[in-house]
Amino acid sequence: MEIDFLMNQNTLITVRYEKIQPLQEFWEKCETQEFDSHYGETIVSLLYCMISELNNFSLRQLDHISQKIDLLEKEIFSKELITKEEKLVEKISIIRRDILDFRRTIKPQNTVLESLKMRGIEFFGKSSEPYFADIIGDHMRIWNLLENNKETIESLQEANDSLLSHRTNRIMKIITLFAVIVFPLTLVAAIFGMNTKYLPIVGMENDFWIVLGLMILGTVFMLSVFKIKKWL
């Protein structure tokens, strides 16, 4: 959303291209006794009040994002939800998009507000300085919270990626273990299953148990090698 302010010593005009909720609430307050009359004593105080409403709205939006980040953090490190990695990746992406949109809106205001403070004091006098300083202070608070949320969601994304990588490694480890067990069995079975005229052991007494023993020995040997090498 975008709002433009046009003002002189006695007049303040706002130009909006869509309905803005905090300003709508502000005008409703102006029509009731909830509105403090001293805010309208000067154009600067009125401008200060309007921008404060916008800043408070931004803080509420940031608080909502912070709550989603807190819930996401619990989900990432929850054993019950560790298998829902695709859903977690989607949630992280949505929150990062929200923060990116917020930053894209807030960042250009830094220069505008600094210019407003400098030119505003020249135009409205020294008495307006506390208003502009307070506006910039609120804006910096919003920016710092936004940066904190950005760093937090990036850290959570890295943590989630690490957990997914660890889980993938565990799966590969299980698959490798299964392959180690099956490989000797398959090899021995393939050797003694060849269609040749002469095969060692085949035809001897207890040849089945001998072949079975070779399979077991091969499996134990492979597992021992992997265990010694600390590959499992």
Rank of each mutant, 00 (worst) to 15 (best):
E205N: 10
V112K: 07
R167G: 00
N8H: 08
S93K: 10
E129Y: 10
I175C: 01
D101N: 13
K227G: 00
K91T: 10
T11C: 00
L217V: 02
N56Y: 14
T152A: 08
V220E: 04
F123K: 14
F35M: 10
M204E: 07
K197M: 01
T83L: 15
Q33W: 13
F192L: 05
A190S: 15
K29A: 13
S128K: 01
T42L: 03
F123D: 03
N195Q: 04
I136Y: 01
S52C: 13
S224L: 06
K229G: 01
L164K: 04
K19E: 15
I76F: 09
S37K: 11
V202L: 03
I65L: 10
I121R: 03
I94T: 15
R119L: 00
I95F: 02
I76W: 02
L164W: 01
E122Q: 09
L232T: 02
K117D: 08
E151P: 03
I106C: 03
Y48H: 14
L59F: 09
S115L: 11
K74P: 05
E205A: 04
K173A: 12
N10E: 13
Y39S: 08
K150L: 10
F226A: 08
I181Y: 05
S224V: 07
N206Y: 11
R170N: 14
I174S: 06
I76E: 02
A179T: 11
V188E: 04
E90W: 07
C30N: 06
S127Q: 10
I171D: 09
T14I: 01
A133I: 01
H64L: 14
L62G: 05
E147W: 01
G218M: 01
S45W: 12
I69F: 06
P22Q: 02
V112C: 08
I51H: 01
Q9I: 03
E86G: 10
E86R: 15
N169R: 09
E34M: 07
T176H: 04
W143H: 07
I153L: 04
M222Q: 11
F226G: 05
T186Y: 09
E80I: 14
W209Q: 05
S52A: 14
R141K: 07
I171P: 07
K68C: 15
E86W: 15
K173R: 12
